[in-house]
């Protein structure tokens, strides 16, 4: 891959807007998933979650 053949492309306004929209959705979904796993772990393992033998 020759360096001089490399080109950059500039996203259009619509593409940037759509990407930002997707990024926000991924961020929100990820945050909700982390909360779900955290709370479900507490419920599943109980208050002794940090007091388990390794």
């Amino acid at each position: 891959m020759a360096v001089d053949k490399l080109e950059t492309i500039t996203p259009t306004e619509a593409q940037l807007k759509a990407r930002r929209n997707r990024n926000i959705a991924i961020g929100v979904a990820l945050a909700l998933f982390v909360i779900l796993v955290y709370v479900a772990s507490i419920v599943r393992l109980g208050p002794a979650i940090l007091n388990r033998s390794m």
Partner: peptide, 21 residues
Amino acid sequence: MALLEKDSYEASGFQLSEATA
């Protein structure tokens, strides 16, 4: 700004997505 090899993205019909959530 996306860094791509122009020949390859033109040949494959590549384009950035406009899909929303």
